[in-house]
């Protein structure tokens, strides 16, 4: 029973992280019909920025750990968002009228560039990441089933999700995004600036990914330049599973995927942990390409 509970908690934690990344995927896909392959890299950059800023502050100053955590979180969010927006400007904006496959190739290239930029500028080794989240006193390690980081991850994800839903529903930019997702040309005709929508979409996606990156780095304890690839692919699987383009779908898909992985690794075989996501992806795309909460798309000539 305890083992089962542990697996549930591990699945929830994983699912929350996937959800934070999948939100960005699903928003970009919803508006631009582009699989932003480099999205996982943004998450990695978030984690790296937090490590660098947090590490530098820890070594050179004597601020309280919670302050350091907050500063590095803000830095990670800012720099990830800046990278996301710049990436859109350089690689995707000139290709907005191009066929979808062309943009996908460009996205694969962007992913390689960002990975190797971090590898060359920093290191290709795994770097230890000292957890900066201060322990909550009533969650004694070993006694309570959930750790502080796990709790933080799940709570943060829920908060981010709710605020994002509110943003999309009620703000002007949120409405513009929904309009653009429904019909891009019509949205432009009623005066929506697609470039602004693009920047906002990429910035918001990058912010959530950066939060995910910082949290997972605190949870796992080590990072390297390659963590973005697998996390990105899995978040994409989660987004497809939930129905790509749909925000509640992305969250639902992430939790389902997190649980499936956790139980698969716990009860079947941990060697194939990464394969479960791919198998789920193939099954979903073959039998229900619109996902759990997605709408069917009609193909026209």
């Amino acid at each position: 029973m305890e083992y089962f509970l542990q697996l549930v908690l591990a699945g929830l934690t994983k699912g929350s992280i996937y959800a934070l990344i999948a939100l960005g995927y699903t928003m970009v896909y919803g508006v631009f019909k582009l699989i932003n392959f480099a999205h996982g890299e943004i998450y990695m950059i978030g984690a790296f920025t937090a490590l660098i800023v947090g590490g530098a502050l820890q070594i050179t100053t004597d601020l309280a750990p919670s302050m350091i955590f907050l500063i590095s979180l803000v830095a990670a969010i800012f720099f990830s968002a800046a990278h996301g927006a710049t990436m859109e400007r350089i690689a995707y904006r000139p290709l907005r009228q191009a066929p979808r496959l062309t943009a996908l190739i460009s996205a694969i290239g962007m992913s390689l560039i960002l990975q190797n930029y971090v590898r060359l500028a920093q290191t290709s080794d795994f770097l230890p990441f000292h957890s900066m989240i201060p322990d909550i006193p009533w969650l004694t390690p070993g006694v309570s089933p959930i750790t502080t980081t796990q709790l933080t991850i799940v709570v943060t994800t829920v908060v981010v999700m709710i605020s994002l839903t509110l943003f999309i529903k009620f703000t002007k930019m949120g409405k513009a995004m929904r309009a653009a997702a429904q019909d891009r040309i019509m949205a432009q005709l009623v005066g929506i600036d697609m470039n602004r929508v693009a920047t906002y979409t990429f910035v918001i996606g990058s912010v959530t990914a950066a939060i995910g990156g910082v949290l997972i780095a605190n949870h796992m304890g080590q990072i390297n330049f390659y963590i973005g690839f697998l996390a990105g692919i899995k978040a994409f699987v989660a987004a497809v599973l939930g129905g790509i383009g749909s925000i509640p779908g992305a969250v639902l898909g992430s939790f389902v995927l997190g649980m499936a992985e956790s139980f698969g690794a716990g009860y079947i075989s941990s060697a194939y942990e990464d394969a479960f996501a791919f198998i789920i992806l193939i099954i979903v795309l073959i039998f229900k390409p619109s996902g759990l909460l997605g709408r069917n798309e009609v193909e026209k000539v």
């Binding site: 191009a98 694969i108 290239g109 962007m110 992913s111 390689l112 560039i113 190797n116 930029y117």
Partner: peptide, 14 residues
């Protein structure tokens, strides 16, 4: 090498 490949994949389509 890999950086260059990435640059090629971004620049060629544009």
């Amino acid at each position: 090498r890999m950086l260059m490949f990435g640059v090629v994949l971004v620049i060629m389509p544009i």
